[in-house]
Design a protein around this nucleic acid. Structure first.
Lengths: 144, 144
DNA sequence: ATTAAATTTGTAATGATTACAAATATGAAA
DNA sequence: TTTCATATTTGTAATCATTACAAATTTAAT
């Protein structure tokens, strides 16, 4: 996947978002880090390169990108929002032990749902996720 | 559904949870209020009947019940956890406008999944939800 | 260069949740 | 029943994520 600044600038412009430097940095970070980072993680890394970066800007930008459909909010943990670039529909797996979120390769069962409503409610987003113990933690358990 | 205290006491005992008065009250409340309440909502109502009830107890109890599989944590909103008695597998719809969470009557596509693992991760919970604008808010919009 | 609008920034406030220790209730043993 | 150990509950203080807000800065158009 080509994710240089020029492409990211295009991505923002196509969605009608003014491509400011901060926004470019934040979106680039998400393209480069597909581990579903928190606001904290994004801010901590970016502030190293861009010392004037403010955490409020990270919040504002993520909110804007989310509203415009560029990224997704992942609300699995209940304590903090994680962020994901909005690519093809996929699901997530949250490890209850280490807290890591994995992409899961199951095709969303509702992705090709012809109707965009359910019980009269207008559907805008479809989410699915699993919780449990991840592969890595399972093998670690056996070695203890 | 019969949800008197005796049945709720049994429910707790069968799961190996000591049926204290506070726990009975909290679980009874969840049985009687299937609107996916927050901790705040549960506490505010119960403290009227049981003035000594502490919010920490509500937190502790909900955590315990959740760990024992008696109830489910719903982490759709990202800002607060909602609670649900753990009945048959179902999905949820969150209205982005009014914040209400509806039960949605779609059979979980993964419910009868024969394998309890995915990509090597051990599956303990399966969740699915939709976000959008609910029926009620849609009709209200048209009247404004 | 000027000005208005949009964006960014820092700080303070809010709200949910957790930590923790004291108080209380429970249940078994004497 | 009394005593003692353990589990539970309670209240307060701390923490952590998020939001509110106004001042500072940047941007874009005139």
């Amino acid at each position: 996947m080509i994710t240089n600044m020029k492409h990211i600038k295009n991505e923002l412009e196509q969605k009608g978002i003014k491509p400011t430097y901060q926004r470019l940095c934040i979106l680039e970070y998400l393209h480069a880090h597909l581990v579903h980072p928190t606001v904290e993680m994004i801010y901590d890394k970016l502030v190293e390169r861009v010392p004037t970066m403010s955490k409020t800007t990270v919040y504002n930008t993520l909110k804007l990108l989310s509203e415009k459909g560029v990224i997704n909010e992942i609300t699995i943990t209940g304590t903090e929002v994680r962020y994901d670039i909005n690519c093809q529909s996929h699901h997530h797996f949250l490890c209850k032990k280490c807290g890591k979120i994995y992409d899961v390769d199951v095709t969303c069962p509702f992705a090709n749902m012809d109707h965009k409503e359910i019980s009269g409610h207008e559907i805008q987003e479809i989410h699915g996720y699993f919780k449990g113990i991840c592969k890595e933690c399972l093998t670690n358990q056996n070695n203890e």
